[in-house]
Design a protein around this nucleic acid. Structure first.
Lengths: 136, 136
DNA sequence: GATTCTCGCAACACAAGTTGTTACGATGTT
DNA sequence: AACATCGTAACAACTTGTGTTGCGAGAATC
C-alpha cells in the first residue's frame, strides 16, 4: 500500500458504519473488511475520534460509532481530520535566499494553496451518506 | 528535505539558466547554488532533458542549457517532465471489491482528477521568464 | 596523445515515512 | 473472575528521497 491508504481506510470504515449507526463495529471487524490490521484501524480512526467524527467504547460490545449522522460528515471533514496535506508547504527556506528561489516559492505556494482550497471545496460537497447511497 | 524538493530544484535551476541562456551551467555550479549535490542535479535535470526542456553537453565548457526560450517554458511543463503526480491513482483495488470501496474510489478519483487538471491549468499560466522577472 | 572537464549511470548508505505485528495495560460487560 | 475491546508503545519490514562515491564516456585544451 502507498500514500493515501489512510484516507481510503478511514472513508471505507465510515461508509460501512453509516449502514447501521446503532451497532458498534470493532476494529477487528473493520480491519478484516479492509484487509488490514486492527491496530492500524485504531490508529487511523483515533484521529477521526479526536476530530469529533467518531466515538469509541471499550469493553464488551464496545467498538466504533459515528458521532454524527452520515449526512453531516463530509469527505472534507475526514480529510482534515487526518491532518495530512496534499500541498507540501514545508519548503525549506535556505538562509542565503536567492531572489529566484523566493519568487518561485511565492508563486508555487500561491498556486498550491488555491488548489488545496479547491480540493477542500469539492470534498465538502460529498457526504458519507452520499457515498453509501451511491454504493447501492 | 521532503517531497517536492525535486520540483523546487528543477525550477530553481531553470530560473538561473534563464538569466544567460548562452552560457552553459555545470551541475556543480547549480548544485552549489541550490545547496545540494551535482549527481542529484543531474538526476533531476535529466528528466527535463528527456522532456525536451533542456540540453546537456559533456566535456570542457559543457553543462546545461535551455532548449527553448524561457518564455516558452511553463511551470506545467516542468511539473509534467518530472513525472510525479499529486494524485495517487494507485489505490490498490482489492479483489473482493466491496461496493462501498468502489463508490469511494470513483468519487475520490473524480475529485482528484479535477484538482490535478486545475493545478496544471494554473501552472501553465506562469513561465520561467515570468518568474525570472518577478525576482528582479 | 595526454590531460582536464563534464555528464551518465550504477551502487550504496542513510534518514524518514508507512504499514504490519506483538505485547500489555486500561476499561467496560457479563 | 473471565472476557472483550480499545489505547499505546515498541519493533520489524518495506518504500522513498537524498546524498555520496566511483568510474566510464565524450569533448575541449594543451
Amino acid at each position: 500500500m502507498k500514500r493515501n491508504s489512510r484516507l481510503s481506510l478511514a472513508l471505507h470504515a465510515l461508509g460501512h458504519m453509516a449502514y447501521d449507526a446503532e451497532h458498534a463495529q470493532t476494529s477487528t471487524e473493520i480491519a478484516a473488511h479492509a484487509g488490514t490490521n486492527p491496530v492500524v484501524v485504531r490508529r487511523v480512526l483515533g484521529k477521526l475520534r479526536k476530530a469529533g467524527l467518531l466515538t469509541s467504547e471499550r469493553g464488551h460490545f464496545g467498538g466504533w460509532r459515528l458521532a454524527r449522522a452520515p449526512q453531516n460528515i463530509t469527505l472534507a471533514d475526514v480529510y482534515l481530520a487526518l491532518e495530512e496535506r496534499l500541498i507540501s508547504t514545508s519548503v525549506d527556506i535556505n538562509p542565503h535566499q536567492c531572489s529566484i528561489e523566493h519568487a518561485l516559492h511565492d508563486r508555487v505556494s500561491e498556486i498550491m494553496q488555491d488548489v488545496e482550497t479547491s480540493l477542500l471545496e469539492r470534498l465538502a460537497n460529498t457526504t458519507i451518506e452520499d457515498v453509501r447511497q451511491a454504493a447501492e
